[in-house]
Design a protein around this nucleic acid. Structure first.
Lengths: 233, 233
DNA sequence: ATTGAAGGATTGTTGAACAATCCTTACCCT
DNA sequence: AGGGTAAGGATTGTTCAACAATCCTTCAAT
């Protein structure tokens, strides 16, 4: 009887320890740069000169380049041979593809919601509640991140780690577009009520209605972004 | 009238040139290692010591590490901090997740086959034909790669570059498992006829039947691999 | 048998150096 | 004046050598 209990305890320790000190400096530099990008201090198209950044952050060129590689993999940066790295600038085709993938992954999650774990469903609910609280205190950037977490939670209903990772990347790319258009309030606020409705439908087990609602949400958001995107040129 | 023609021509040149000389040595080293892995000369769990490889391939440690990064991102290698890189060893959970994702992506492609481009449908047909030709001359590794290309083509019916890339990674991971079980002939041969049936159903526009066939294929393949996998321990 | 402490081996990170490529500027020619 | 060209500087690509940090093995001690 003591054996399985101890086993579970050790498993918990093992999982926690992994996050503890296993992190290279390149990964930490990447975290730093990722934050600069997702918060919009670095804009699409900006160039990241190696030497300047090395001097600023005080790491060697090699580690900086390793950090670049990590972010290139996440598609936040692009690397042009012999020219340097730049913050990614999304094209109209990219935008269309991002929503194409969102439709596939998030709708798949909603369709399978009845087989999803209670924890996964709870995270959907939690994200909606976070968004509503953030809206009450009028902190619109938080509304935006809650919105993103909501949709992350939807595709997480698939129960697949690889799908989770892909969605994380897709939504990180989308943040590049969000910053390209001003006034996060106007953009995110109208979607609060729709997220709430989707969550309620999911809890009631009405997955077909939830999927219809989700598709309409995605259509509207894509159209709005596409319009704003074309106007920016 | 000359302008658009010239424009298209220049676009063709530009696209080709991109693939031509824009390839870092790290990418070439990664190609080399990837080949070693997918052909099975490097087995899951094997360790790749930096210095030995640097001496063998005659590149510096930095470029070797850059090549490692690329393959880690493709999930063919795992990098354990301060311990080195190893050929990935898939767990049973990984196997289940790979088929979970395949079900989502390939079925989505099949469901949308009627809206797919003729080129995408042609690639499905071509992959089946390749497999049949390879079977006739009894070259079973080629049958295996044709099988993989067939399923790649199915998810490519989505028409999404990002889905394409994800499928490429998923199927590359699966090759790690294929090598863990012997006799590629026994494994791949029975699926030739089923691929042919799926392609025929797709051409006839019977997407529902094709999806049923695909799901049954995936169920059988996963069960077979899972069994072989459990026996290997 | 388990623990603890050297010791060697491997990886993590740095800095400097040189080659290759790109970009700018200034020049020359028509 | 305008366009092509060559030189120069700036940036990136790649390598090398060194040291620090960490891991793994061995061996001794309790």
């Amino acid at each position: 009887m003591t054996v399985p209990a101890q086993q579970r305890w050790l498993d918990g320790i093992a999982a926690a320890r992994h996050e503890l000190d296993r992190s290279s400096t390149a990964a930490r530099v990447a975290d730093l740069l990722r934050d600069e990008i997702t918060t919009g201090r670095l804009c699409p198209g900006d160039r990241l000169p190696e030497e300047d950044l090395c001097r600023a952050i005080k790491v060697s060129r090699n580690t900086m380049r390793e950090a670049f590689r990590l972010l290139v993999q996440e598609r936040l940066l692009v690397h042009e041979f012999n020219r340097g790295v730049f913050v990614r600038r999304l094209t109209g085709d990219d935008l269309a593809d991002l929503y194409r993938v969102r439709r596939i992954l998030e709708c798949e999650g909603v369709r399978g919601a009845r087989e999803a774990t209670p924890e996964a469903l709870a995270r959907v609910e939690a994200a909606v509640a976070d968004g509503e609280r953030a809206a009450e205190r009028e902190s619109w950037p938080d509304v935006g991140t809650a919105d993103i977490r909501f949709h992350q939670a939807l595709s997480a209903l698939c129960g697949s780690p690889r799908i989770d990772e892909m969605t994380r990347h897709i939504l990180a790319e989308l943040r590049l577009v969000f910053h390209e258009m001003g006034s996060p309030r106007e953009f995110h606020e109208p979607y609060l009520a729709r997220n709430r409705r989707m969550a309620d439908l999911l809890r009631a087990g009405e997955t077909e209605a939830a999927e219809r609602e989700l598709r309409s949400y995605l259509d509207d958001a894509e159209a709005q972004l596409t319009r704003a995107y074309r106007d920016a040129e």
